[in-house]
Each structure stands twice: as C-alpha cells, then as structure tokens.
Design a protein around this nucleic acid. Structure first.
Lengths: 327, 327
DNA sequence: AACGATTTTGAAATCGATTTCATTATAGAA
DNA sequence: TTCTATAATGAAATCGATTTCAAAATCGTT
C-alpha cells in the first residue's frame, strides 16, 4: 500500500508538505507540482482509517432500519442517500428485524465507527432505548415516528387515516371494519387506529377492529376471511396499509363481492400496484423519499453545527388522499 | 472519549494487558477482573478507526447498487445482509444511479475505507470497469450478471425467458411482441431478449421488438399504446419485467381487450402484485434473496481465504415458471 | 541595506489501538 | 534444590495520516 510517506519521498518533500497539498495550506508551486506527479503516478489515496483516527470524523452516516426490502423503507433510504451522497457522505446500513437488542447493537457499533450521525427508522420506544438515543454521542434523527424530545421527521398518520375515514363515512358506509397492525408501532399501528376510531366516534359510529399478523398481503387476506365469516354485512373496510388492503380486496372478490358496490376499501401508502387492481385502490399518499431527504438535511445541519441553539426540529409531513374506484 | 489507556490506568495495568484482555492472550485472573470492572464502569468501547489502522481490516463489506428502492435490489441486499450480519459484518452502501463514474467512485472509496470485500449489483461492463474490478485490492463478487473472469452470482435470465416464450408458443400464440429493456444491461436487457428471439426462431416465428424507456409501469403502458396502434392483431406479449407487463395489461384492458382470450401476457420477476391483478400475471420467479445470500457466502469465503486455489466461482441460480391466468 | 511581516518548510507529537520483544514470575521435572 | 519450559508482563514500536511549532525563506517598506 502506498502511503503519504512514500509520496513525500518520491516528491522529495516532507510528509507535512504532502498533507498540506491534500488539505490546503501554504505550499510552493514547484513542490505542489512534484507531489501532484507522484500521486498521479502511483494512484495514491489516503488511508481513511488513519484520517478518521487523527481527525475524529468520518464522512459516513449510520442508517438503522427494521428491514431493507420494504417499499416504504427503501424509499426513505433512497431519500436519505440522495442528500447524503450529494454532500459526500456514504451510508452504513444496519437492519434490526424489529429487535431492540440489534438496534442498540448498531447504535453502539456505529458510534464506535465514528459515523458523523445516525438516522433510525420506524423504531419503537422503550425506556432503555430512550436512554440510548439521548446518550448518543453523535447527532441522531428518527424517521416515521415522533416520541417528543428527539429530532424527527414523520408522516401525518393520524391525519391521513382521519381523512380516509371521513371520506368513507361521507360515502355512506356504516358497518365498518378497521384492519390494523401491531400497535407497538406508534405510527402505523397506534396513530392510524386512533384516527379511524376518533373519526368514527365523531360520527357516532363504532367499528370492528381486526389486528393483522404482519404487513403482508396474505394477512389482509386472512382478515377478510374473518370478516366474511363473522361480519358478513360489513360495507366498509379501512386498512392500515395498502398491502393489507390488497389482500382484503382479493379475498372479497374471490367471495363474489362486488367492489365497491358491496364494500368500500381504503389503504394507506400509495404503493405502485394500487392503480393496477380492479377496482383501483383509494389510499393516502405518504412522502417517503421526502421523509428521507428531510431527515438527512436536518442531520447534516446538526453535523455541521448549524443547529446549535436552534429549537428541537420535528417535521410532520403531509399526505394526499388519492380517491380511486375502491371507495 | 475513553481510551484503552484510560482503562489501563484505572485498572493499574499496562495498555498491553488491556489489549490482551480484549483480544485474548495470557493474563492473570486478578488483572482480568480489574480490567473487566473498569470497562464495565466506563462503558469503554474500542475505537474502530484505531483498530482498522493497526490491523488493516474492518468488518464491513461494500455493497454497490444502481438504486436501493427497487424490489429486486432491496431483496438482494436483504439476502446479503442476513449472511453478513450473522458473521459480524455490516454493510456500507453506495448507489450509482447507473452511472459508471459513481460506481468507480464507490469502488475506490470503499477500498480506502478498508472494507473486507465488495459486492456489485447489476452493473454493466466497460473496459475501464473491467480493469477497476480486476485491480480491486479486496475480494469482489458481482450479482445479477456474468462477465466471465469475475466471481458472480446471477439468474438464469436466458432460461427463464426461453421457457416463457416456449409456453406462449405452446399456448398457440403466433403474433408476438417482445417488450424489452436497454441492452446495456446484459441480463435483463440482452439475455432475455435473445432467449425470446432464439425460442421464437426455433419455432420458425419472429416477433416485433419494442424497447421500453425504463423499468416503470408507465413505460409498459406506453409500449402497449404503440402495440395497439401499430400491431393491432398481436396475440401475445412477452415483457422483460413484471412492472412492464403490468403497464401493458393496464393499457390493453383500458382498450377493451379481453385477457387472456385476446392477448396472452408474461413478465419476469414474481413481484408481489402479480396475483392481485385481473388476470393474474404469468411470470418467472427469480431468487433475489438467495442471490444475495450466495454472493455474501462466496465473498465471506474469499475474505477468509478459504477460496485460495479454488476455481473461479460463478453461480447461476434457477427460476420457476408461475403459470397464471394471463397466459 | 535593514527591518518587520508574511509564507514556506519539516521535525516531531499525536490520534488509539495492536504487536513485538525482552524480561520477570511461576510451574513442573529432575 | 536446581533447572528448564511456560505463562505473565510492560516498554516501545507501529499503523498512516494531521497538526503544532519553531526555524528558514521570501516579501515589501522605508
């Protein structure tokens, strides 16, 4: 491996001169030239570990996600990446499969690694993790959730589901089922469910609450089977996510229901297949890439110290109701 | 920041002793105890940059992808991650947007970073990049393509499209259109197109070749508009990817075509929405996660030197034809 | 020509770990 | 008890960069 010292010898200058050439500092043109030549000849590139050790900084940010192969997650990561790459940072990725211990593991590992900052996606909150977040030695931003006290960028889960529910009520539906997900997830689980039931109560309505096993199409399908068996007069189904909604639609269609005449269906997320099904799916668009970009921008400001003294930044992104055939 | 030296002072031992405690080496039980206590009290964790500088290795692998927010890519990355995480490696992610210069940039950056190995996904080959790959100082595996000479894990793109084409011919279709993607991508572009036309020629048939703008649903939709306008008697459409196929189906259905009675359609990929459309989409399943896992396993072997003297490993994964309503 | 101000320069210290090596302590064998 | 093999120990070198600091060279003024 070619080192700075080698370049110094080749160019017949001191190592300090080479360092100054690389990082800026007064240096005569003739020495610069010799150094430039030596570097060009050898293809020398500085050792990052040495730089990191000496300077204490590394142009990397950690990104902690539950899983990478999910539409929403990968879009947020794409957003983070576009901003970070533009600023010369690369991403160190950690996946947790929703396990707290792994999340803590990566939080530590990334700090050991001297990353400049960390973004955590769709986490859940426990006292231990709250401590870990607060004692993090580098800037930290959370996406997808708002726990107060910690910097974050999140969606208007409540508003989106509220609007969908109101639309469904306005459509004249009264026998409504809500298909939700695990409420440990404060955003997709808790907020959306609360929004739906709050809006229903506002209209003096109640609903059946079914809990899907996970976020997959198959789980929506299973919930729909229950609906068909136990609540056959259901005329509206609110789903916490688009994938669940698609599973529900599939089951209902197979059971001979006419959509949307017999039953109205809504999802959340604006996944790309939403316009391909019959009927097309009414949903709320969330801005995942935007979420990633904003989180990255905020993190950058914190890294560059531009957030000193500023109030805690917490951004709530909007939503757009996409009214399609299924409602 | 707490350093090894601090621990040494607290425990009243030499720095070497602490290092031996951490890395294994003869050390008396009493000193071990004192060091253990000091570490527990302080929460000391070794500085990775220093370790990397000294040992020359870092438990990270670089992953270079065109974009992360794609179904196939994120699944491959998930596969890579599961194997790598299980072995204590984390992932350094670089996205290229298909630009060679960025690919080379990350290739260099990751080497500067002392990653243990690099996996490059869905790249294209140019002389410059071939050089860059061959002169890579760390083990390298390519996924999704086979360029010979370089270690890789890829899909049987040719076989999959060949089987689909034969199935379509067997179905009795004769006026066939092939909707392909940019042939700079040797796998999804070139191989699939060749497989289709080879199989057609085998049956003394030819086909119209349309080139989609990109990999999005909308591009398939536009191709279908052309088909409707220019080749109205088409009775079979082979699509290089599922998303294109969905766009094609949407356009044909809107134009009043009956599927599959009027026209048969196939895609490749087994995306999750394939079973949600009417008709459901006939496609070839590819094993993306498996691809990532295999690539990671091979890379690990190379990293651990277990691949010395072994012949060049190039794995071709299989496919499964999923025959559904659209054919 | 002489002076102070500014630029250029390289030796040496430093970042925080690991590793070598020579030395001392301990154990077991004779 | 003496000697050899083994275990335990810490001082110092090392990895490859950056940065400090004092000395040397250059510059512009008077």
């Amino acid at each position: 491996m070619i080192t700075l010292k080698d370049i110094a010898q080749m160019a017949d200058v001191s190592p300090s001169a080479v360092s100054r050439y690389l990082n800026g500092g007064s240096l005569s043109e003739e020495k610069s030239q010799r150094i430039r030549d030596a570097i060009a000849q050898t293809g020398y590139r500085p050792n990052q570990a040495a730089q990191t050790l000496r300077t204490g900084t590394l142009k990397q940010v950690g990104v902690i996600v539950p899983k990478i192969n999910s539409n929403s997650v990968s879009n947020v990561v794409a957003g983070i990446n576009s901003v970070m790459a533009a600023n010369g940072y690369s991403l160190l990725l950690g996946t947790t499969a929703g396990q707290d211990e792994k999340e803590l593991h990566f939080l530590n590992l990334m700090q050991d690694n001297q990353v400049s900052g960390i973004i955590v996606m769709g986490t859940t909150m426990t006292p231990i993790k709250k401590d870990a977040f607060k004692s993090c030695r580098v800037p930290l931003v959370i996406t997808g959730q708002n726990f107060g006290e910690i910097c974050c960028v999140h969606h208007d889960d409540y508003g989106a589901m509220q609007a969908l529910t109101e639309a469904m009520i306005a459509r004249g539906r009264r026998k409504i089922v809500y298909v939700g997900v695990d409420e440990k997830d404060a955003a997709t689980g808790l907020s959306r469910r609360k929004a739906a039931f709050d809006a229903l109560r506002q209209a003096d309505l109640d609903a059946v609450y079914l809990l899907a096993q996970d976020y997959e199409v198959e789980s929506g399908y299973q919930c729909a089977q229950q609906i068909l068996a136990l609540y056959p007069d259901t005329d509206g189904i609110l789903c916490a996510t688009d994938k669940l909604a698609h599973g529900v639609m599939k089951a209902l269609k197979e059971a001979g229901k006419h959509l949307p005449e017999d039953v109205s269906i809504c999802g959340v997320g604006d996944d790309w297949p939403d316009q391909l099904t019959t009927p097309t799916l009414t949903t709320a668009r969330l801005y995942h890439e935007q979420c990633g970009e904003d989180a990255a921008s905020i993190l950058l400001q914190m890294i560059e110290g531009k957030a000193e003294g500023q109030p805690l930044r917490q951004i709530k992104l909007g939503y757009t109701i996409l009214r399609r055939e299924s409602l």
